[in-house]
Structure formats: C-alpha cells, structure tokens
Design a protein around this nucleic acid. Structure first.
Lengths: 340, 340
DNA sequence: ATTATTGATGTAAGCGCTTACAAATGGGGT
DNA sequence: ACCCCATTTGTAAGCGCTTACATCAATAAT
C-alpha cells in the first residue's frame, strides 16, 4: 500500500493485455473488429486497471466528441428546465453528452459560450431563438459545427429550428382574452431587444387586438426581466394606469406569478377584478392561486425532437429541417369574463 | 467567396505573425513573458484569423483545464439552482468554467458522471452529500482530482465539506413546531437511502421530539421523491392517519408545496387545521399560499464559499477545509399554534 | 501445391497545444 | 573589450488517443 499509482493510459492497458494500443482502442470503439478472445483479455485489463479513456486525447485524435452544447438564456427559473431535460434524455439515448451553459440574456456572453463550447469540441449546438449576429453562424460554419435553434419556429429563416410560433400561440391566447370581453388589455413582456420569442409574443397580442377591431396601440405594455419580483413591480405600475386594464397578459408564467403575488398584496382579486395570463405552462402555473390560464408548450416533445434533429445533422443524416411544435391554450382560473 | 477555410490553428497564427508557436502560446497564456511589440503583432493575427484555441489540445498538453465539475442529484426543481449559480459565478470570477451534470439521485449514474467529468479533465469536483462509495474517492485520488462536498457539513467526516448540519437545522424548526403546541407530528421526507441530507432532516425532527419528551416513534413518516405531486400524494396519505397529525413537516419546500396544494384540494385549511413546514427557502416558499414557514439556507453564500475552497484545493493552496454555513428558521404563515 | 482473399493485429503518424531547454540578444560591471 | 546574466524567442518533445496502412496468418479458390 501507499504506492502512488497514477492514472493508467491506453498504453498501460495494452501492455497488461499483451496487445498493441490500436487493438485496445478498437476494443473500446468498435468491439466487433476484434476477435472475442482478445477482447476479453483486453476488457479484463481495462477492468483491473480501472482505466478510463482520456477524453481530451480522444477528441483530439478522433475529431469527434459525441458532445452537444446548449446555450440557454437563463437557468434561474424553470422556463427551459423541462425542455432541456428531455433534450438531454434523448441525447443520452443516442450516445451523446450534453453540455449546458447560460448566457444571462447577454449576446456577448452567448458568443463567448459558443466559442467555448466549440473549442471544447462540441459536435453540435442548440441555440435558443434566432436573433443573433451572422458572424456567429460563419464561425460555426468554419468550424463545421451544425447548430439548431429551439423555442422558436420560423420556416422562412434560413436556419433550421424546432419550436413553435410565439406570435401565433400568444395570439390565440389573446383571442380568448378578448372573447371574454376584455377591452382594456395590458401586457407584461420580457425584454424584447434581441429576443425574438418575447417580440413574437407581443406581436401576437397586437395581432389579436387588431383582428378584433381593437386599436393595438392601446395595449399598455411594460417590459421587464423574467423575474417574479419584476413581474410584481410591473403589475403595480399597470394597476396605476387610467383607465385600469382589466386583463394583464404576461410574457411568461414567471412574470404572471409575480403579477398574481402583487395583486394579492394590493388586495386586487384575480380573476374577479383583473384577469392575468401566463405563457409556457411550467409547473409554477398550477401552483399559484388562482392557477394560471396560460399557453401550454409541449417542452418534452420539443426537447426530444430537437435532440433527434441535431444528432441527425451532426451525423450528416440531415441538412437541418425545421420542425413545428403545436401549443395550446389551457384554461385554468386566472382568466374570467370581463364583468359589465 | 466559397473558399472553404477551416479553423485556424496555433500554427497558422504563428506563421501569420512571423513567430514560433511557442511565442503565440505565451502571448495567450502568460502575456508578460513576451515583449509588447511581438504581442501586438500576435494578437493582431489572432484577431484577424478569428483564432480560438483548441481546448482538448490545451488540456492535453497543459494537464490543466480550468474546469470544475459538479454533479447534483437533480435539475428538475430549483433546490440546487441558486447555490449552483453562485458557485458558478464565483468560479468564473476566478477564471474557471463549470460543468454540471445531474445524477437523478442514482449512485450508479453519479459514479458514471464522475468518471466522465474526470476524463474530460475537470480540475476539481463538487459533490452533494457524503454518502458515496469509498472506491469513488480512491478513483479521484488516483487521478489527483480534488473534490469537495456541499449541502452538508460534517466535521467528523474525513472529506472536506461546505454546508450546514441538516439535522441541527431541521431540529430547530421542529422545536418551533413543538413550541407551537403540536404533538401529533408527521413528516414527508425525501428518499433517505443514500441521501445523508434527507436522513439528517429526519433525524433532526426525531431529536427535537425526544428532547421535548415526545416519543420519536410516534412520528408519522412518509418517504417519497422530491416532486410536487409526490408531496401532494404523501400529504393525502398522512391526512388519513388516525389520529390525524396537526403538523406536517416536509423534507423540502417542493414537497411542502405539494402538501399545500393537496390541502387545498382536500379542503383542509392551512394553517388553521394543519400546519405545514418546508426546508430550503427557495423562491417557491414565498409564492405558495400560505407562504411557507421553512428553514432558510443561504445558498449563495454556500455556493461562493464552496467555489473558493475548491479552487484553493485545485491550486494546492488548501488541503481541504470544512466550512459551516448557518441556517435559520423563517416564520411565514404556514405554521400556527395548535388550537385546543 | 500455389495464389488470392479475408480478417485480426501491429506500426506509426499525427491531432493542436504547452513547456523544458537551447539559442540569441542586449545591457551592465570590470 | 570581455564576460555574465537576464530577457526574449525558437526548437522540439511529448500529452493519450485514433486510424490509415502494413503485416501476417488462415482459409478458400484454382
């Protein structure tokens, strides 16, 4: 005891098994190219030495990492959690590993992360939304790293994407709000700059208003970060407007949860006095009271499909298609008929 | 146009700048070992070629990755989110990158992830809780990868850890519950097998009961996964007990949120009829109604301190100390005096 | 019996980087 | 003028792995 062994290498295994490094490598990567007896001997050695291949060396030699990178705007709340989990599950099934990092909604940080992930040998990248410098795509092309956009679906964009039309989905919800008799509509949106999902959602509300003969310019709009407290703050501001809005549509469930909380603090009853809606249908939507009327996004489906498409691209089996995911309005309790 | 350039290497930069690869490498890694004029010329070339160092090659040559790995039991809910975010922030400040993966509370998966992270060249590892095979620690030692345990503090464990005593913290909360007059106490715990945090929390409740002269064996205990719906289910079962418990202490806020929701569905008023408590004080605790009385864990502080300690270990500046983080009970609305 | 063919294994050339060491350069100090 | 030392730069040896190609043995075909 006490003998300081250091980590074994391919070479050590080869020696122990009495074969060449090539054979060991083959045992590990394409076992069927090696005869049974040899393989057993090698695996034996691998086992007893407790050998783990050095990833960096492998990537370097094979120019393939079986790693997919994903850059999401935030990990702070659950917006991306479920979809990403499904993405990862599917990747794992197909033999890939996922590396995640968050950009904090900062384009500069995102660029940085993309470079990092590529430098780390990611075989493909999952990006959120389309808004992004062309230069980045050039960089990816140069490094021959395919990328797929999720949480957004724009068939006319040149880039492949897996997601849904944020505008259409929100428009549908807005139509429900209008159908419930609301005329003084307000919206708490995420920051729209550089965020096509947030933009789309605002656009959806405006479109529904215009379609119903309402003046889209009367939409009381507040933009803020995706945080519960920010949602609360925005709601308070909106409630000071005159005439006071009767429905507050939120850019996502997190903002809506904040709005609900503030309503509670202000003694405003939801939905009796003011209706509130969300977007995403994350777990939170069912927990708050009243439970949120929101847009359900099939995150798991989106995640899995994105994974399948991206690996197909990585393996040269697809040029990169765009896939549309359906959303639907789910009616809970936070939206009610506008009284009077 | 159309000319397919491929990613530039150190060599390309060296040629473009008219220096050797060693000089370029030095410009990038220890700029002060290179004279100003040369450095400018090199940086110029780096810039114009759009060069990004190949990470795998760098790790391989330098045997240092400036990457820290963290394996957490789950990403599904927010339990680890805030602490991990702080951990990452601090790491970044110190020039490290964080790689996260989740083990889904499966020891086998955790072992796998640890190997993966080490193979990827992680300089250090953050692990959650102490319960773990000795073999794993041997493996880490052999690969000379320091590791730090978080979310738990056990000075008598040989391994360094940053966290708090789960038992003490829960005991304090249980004392509050008992002080409020509750005698029929129930607990919804996470799965305790292989989870020292969950074990500690149960132990804390038992200890408080024993200390107050209650029979710890009368604790009605249900173990379940950390999911809202599981918490709800467990709560329902507990409410069928006779005599019915007057206080339900939950192993974390997520379970408590589920309990609260089920109470609503069953028409049981909290805290008038039954008190409910949580643990962690994640955002959720304030959102649910009634807001949860829970144990506040300073996640950010824990994350930052863990990061500092682990990097110190990686850099050979520390042998691995254990750091204790203080928790405190926060009184909101879900715990009330036991009537009668 | 001889040759072509197939399959298992070995040989060795990198992959793109860091770094020990060598070489070159440029002052002081004498 | 000479030597010494410090500073800057270059040379080249790996890091641990994969894989194209060479080799070799065994079997099938002639």
């Amino acid at each position: 005891m006490g003998k300081t062994r250091s980590a074994p290498t391919l070479n050590d295994v080869a020696k122990a098994a009495g074969v060449s490094t090539a054979t060991v490598s083959r045992c590990l990567n394409s076992p069927d190219r090696v005869i049974e007896a040899t393989r057993q001997r090698v695996m034996q050695a691998v086992e007893s030495l407790g050998y783990t291949p050095n990833f960096a060396a492998r990537v370097m030699a094979a120019k393939r990492s079986f790693t997919i990178g994903a850059i999401i705007p935030t990990m702070d709340n659950a917006i991306f959690a479920r979809g990403l989990q499904a993405f990862q599950d599917q990747l794992r099934e197909d033999g890939y590993t996922l590396l995640v990092s968050s950009s904090a909604y900062d384009p500069e940080a995102e660029r940085e992360q993309i470079r990092t992930l590529v430098a780390r040998g990611a075989d493909g990248l999952l990006l959120i939304g389309h808004a992004r410098d062309a230069e980045i795509y050039e960089y990816l092309e140069r490094h021959q790293v395919p990328s797929l956009v999720a949480w957004s679906y724009e068939p006319e964009a040149q880039r492949p994407s897996v997601g849904f039309s944020n505008a259409d989905a929100m428009c549908e919800l807005a139509q429900c709000v209008i159908a419930a008799g609301h005329r003084r509509i307000a919206m708490i949106s995420g920051i729209t700059e550089g965020n096509d999902r947030a933009q789309g959602r605002v656009e959806g509300v405006r479109r529904a208003m215009a379609d119903s003969g309402l003046d889209a310019n009367t939409l009381a709009l507040v933009e803020t970060d995706y945080e519960i407290e920010k949602g609360a703050e925005a709601f308070r501001r909106l409630m000071a407007f005159f005439p006071r809005p009767t429905a507050v549509m939120c850019g996502n469930d997190v903002l809506a949860a904040g709005a609900l909380r503030e309503a509670g603090r202000l003694g405003i009853r939801v939905p009796e006095q003011v209706s509130v809606t969300g977007f995403d249908d994350i777990e939170l939507a069912e927990i708050v009271s009243p439970a949120l009327t929101t847009v359900h996004v099939p995150h798991r489906e989106m995640g899995r499909k994105a994974a399948r498409e991206l690996t197909a691209m990585v393996e040269g089996k697809s040029e990169g298609r765009s896939i549309c995911i359906g959303t639907k309005v789910v009616n809970r309790c936070s939206l009610a008929e506008q009284p009077g």
